[in-house]
Amino acid sequence: MKKNDKILLGHGSGGRLSHELIRDLFVKHFSNPTLIKQSDAALLQLGSTHVAMTTDAFVVDPLFFPGGNIGNLAIAGTVNDLSVSGAIPRYLSASFIIEEGLPFEALEQVVITMAEEARKASVEIVTGDTKVVDRGKCDKLFINTTGIGEIRAGAGNIASGDLIKAGDKILVNGFIGDHGMAVMSARNQLHIKAPVESDCACLNGLIDHVFNATGEVHFMRDATRGGVGTVMAEIVASRPWGIQLFEAEIPIRQAVRGICELLGFDPLYVANEGKVVMVVDGAFADKVLQQLKSHPLGQDAAIIGEVVERHPGKTWLQTSIGGNRIVDMPAGEQLPRIC
């Protein structure tokens, strides 16, 4: 069969098709030494100042879901991308593409949410843009935010993953899969009412809290679209070490597990909006864990795996019954099973 001559939904899923699109189109044509690193945020030097810059576009259906709305995502997504890159987020821009006919009240609620979220995260929204398009030309409201922040002293290399070594431990700051399942159950097609709220949150406070206590974090990434499984598959690729995860240690809410069982989804690949995966020096893992647990956004943190010398370049998961299986990048959106 011939190659795709049109963009498919899978190209936006964060899986293999997305990666191919980025590599074979965007990076190919925009190529420069900064972009080629493809980290969550670009690390730049302006005069003697080191800054990180990132941008993200937000589309979500429905706009309002249990635990938040598109406004929370627009702030937290960009703040988190800066934070996991070792930066202290400072300033954001916000652009709105609005569909004709959107109730003013809905837009106002989103904007107020963004203002509150930005205040909580100590960032300022300093510039923006607005476009209104004909009914049907976009789905209610799309938001783009761009952020810049100062790189934390000594954290300039954290985003590269080069500090990771065998013996390191892998931590996550709480239950995974909440956001994806909250949005899924908010779409009325499924007729599932589940007590799950999005975990959407700015993580810079939590990350500060960890960094103020210990400098032994070797890598961080927020596990958004594609979930923790995709983060693992991404960071392990072509490295001289492997990753071993322990299914029994991964915090997953009963309700999230339940919906996943029902739909045939793997929670490892379900989206989060307030979860950071940290790779930390093995000797300091317990200290970092305690530090995470002492913060409101890390109370359910856990050590979920370790960096190992065996199976370099691959992530393996020890299943809850003691079997072993590989964790790879998902091919596209997870689809509900048929039977």
């Binding site: 069969m1 899986g15 191919e20 199976h311 299986r325 590989i326 091919a331 596209g332 997870q334």
Partner: peptide, 27 residues
């Protein structure tokens, strides 16, 4: 033939033998 660019149907569905082998067991 991979789940992203399947040639045969067994690679498409997550219940397909090829898909399941690819995802969970390929090494």
């Amino acid at each position: 033939c991979t789940p992203a660019e399947p040639v045969g149907a067994c690679m498409v569905s997550n219940e397909g033998a090829c898909h399941a082998y690819y995802r969970y067991n390929k090494d």
